[in-house]
Design a protein around this nucleic acid. Structure first.
Lengths: 120, 120
DNA sequence: CCTATTCATCGTATATCGACGATGAACGAT
DNA sequence: ATCGTTCATCGTCGATATACGATGAATAGG
């Protein structure tokens, strides 16, 4: 039923690109203005808790908590309980990995398109 | 309307990143396995029409047409009517711009996080 | 112990996504 | 002129996203 299972190649190509569904999961976490803003904010402060983000984003606390959860489940952010607070920080390795994955997808696509001299 | 031109602004704010909602619009178009696969396919062939993609992806023609429209409106793909067909091709400049925008967002975030020595 | 703070989760409402089939328009071919 | 192909769009349906308030758990501090 979910035909998406057939989209990605059975065996990962040697090109270093990852399966589309793996990549798209990370991209989805990034594809929201609030979450982009949260990532930027998180990377700029020493550490922060949920309430800090709430004050910054002017969103309800429950909404921010949801966004943080999405980033958390995507692996872009890490968290540890700290007393009554929760200590959030970005996962820099994951960010770099996602950045490289996007580049590894888009750059070859652009290059191939150019070398084929495609014009419309 | 075509927001991709603004993704990597030459005179971006001091941070070097662009507005979150501009970037997130481009990311959303990319955040689906089928659309990633379409992009890869489009970049690998000389040109193609909607039906080619349909045969490749095993999705209904209307579904593929929708995905192509999303990629089109995001500016990642260009199209020109060609007889009864539609000729699709990736916009390599837009892909590169998006790739750089993502790197311009994620890489500084990761760098700042590292230099702050954040550990959880 | 009691209170205030912080946070995650639940429930809900609305909007959008993602898939499909059906349909009509545009075009090429016969 | 007619038929077949290709495509975009419409309507629909179920699933999910996104926002919020309410609630309860956990903790710090008085």
């Amino acid at each position: 039923m979910n035909s998406l299972a057939n989209i990605s190649e059975p065996s990962a190509p040697a090109s270093g690109c990852c399966a589309p569904d793996v990549l798209s999961r990370g991209l989805f976490a990034l594809a929201h203005p609030a979450r982009i803003e949260i990532l930027r904010y998180l990377s700029g402060v020493d550490y922060c808790c949920c309430k800090d983000v709430v004050c910054r984003l002017r969103l309800a606390q429950s909404t921010v908590s949801q966004h943080l959860k999405i980033l958390l489940e995507a692996g872009l952010v890490r968290m540890s309980p700290q007393g009554q607070r929760s200590r959030y920080a970005v996962d820099s390795k994951a960010l770099l990995a996602l950045s490289e994955a996007v580049g590894g997808l888009l750059d070859p696509c652009a290059a191939r398109a150019d070398e084929n001299g495609k014009e419309i």
